[in-house]
Each structure stands twice: as C-alpha cells, then as structure tokens.
Amino acid sequence: MASIAARRLGKELKEIHSEGCPVGINLVKADDFETWWFTIEVMGESEYKGEVYTLQFRFDGQYPISSPAVQFVITDGRQAPIHPHVYSNGHICASILGNEWSPVLSVTAVCVTLQSMLASCKKKERPADNDRYVRHAPDNPKKTQFHYDDDTV
C-alpha cells in the first residue's frame, strides 16, 4: 500500500508531466518520491535575471500533512541565490516551508512561491546571520524549522 505521500506525489508528478511546470520552473529529476529537483528562474526584470537555480525537495511519508524539506542545491557547481532569506548552504527561510505550511500547497505551488520570493528581492545579500547559521545548520532544513517553531512565539 503506497503511502499518502507517494500517492499524492504521484498525482502531482502526473500533472507536471501532463500539463507542464509553471513558467520558469522545470523538473530536473523526480526518480522517486523522496527527492525531486527543479530548476527555477525568475522571469522578467529582477535581481536574478538570467540566473538559474536548482531547488531540491525532500519528502517524508507524511507529506502533504508535513511540509517538504526544500532548499537550494549547492553541489555540482550549483549555487544558492544571494537573497536575504537564503543561506549560503541553500537553506531557505520561508514560513510556508515551516509553520505556515499548508497541505493544500503543492510542489509547484512552493516553486512558484519561492520564485516570487526571489523576484521581489531588491537587494542581493545574505541573511545577517548567515555565517553563524551555516556553521551549525543541520542537514535537513526542517530541523531548523523545528527550532524555529519552538522559539518563535
């Protein structure tokens, strides 16, 4: 019996294959229901014009009730965009990936959201605490999110 995650991701994937990704977003690989890669490019005028980044999604068995672990890929010569909410290790600080995740969101919806996060950037810079964070960051950005959930309020 396939898990809910696999079943839903299967449907999302089918939809991506049949209807394509939104503009500026392309599926790189989705060989299983654990890790997917997308390229993401900001269309139109922006700080990131002409730059292509790679997003990695990691899913656990409770997706979509639990959020996917989403980050930029920084291996294989790929870079994380320089953005106030993106750490140099690729981790992304976005509430919809953490405590404001909704199971209604889909993979492409997350891509689009992050795309527009980049598009709205006015100044390319790293988060203020980038170095400190990156030094101790867990592999899985969701672990960070966990502490974030813990301590925010």
Partner: peptide
C-alpha cells in the same frame, strides 16, 4: 517577529541551537 527578536537578543548567548533559531526568525513569511 519583533517579539521574537526581543527573545532572541537575550537568548543569543545561549547556544548554537538558539542562534539558528534566530536566523530563522529573521525571515518573514513570503
């Protein structure tokens, strides 16, 4: 977020864990 900043400042010295959180906090929802 402001509130958590308040918390974060006095928390900063605590440990790395906390500093991570602090980093998280800086980010606003999309």
């Amino acid at each position: 977020k402001r509130k958590s900043q308040l918390g974060a400042e006095s928390e900063q010295e605590c440990n790395d864990l906390m500093s991570r959180d602090n980093g998280q906090r800086v980010t606003s929802p999309p």
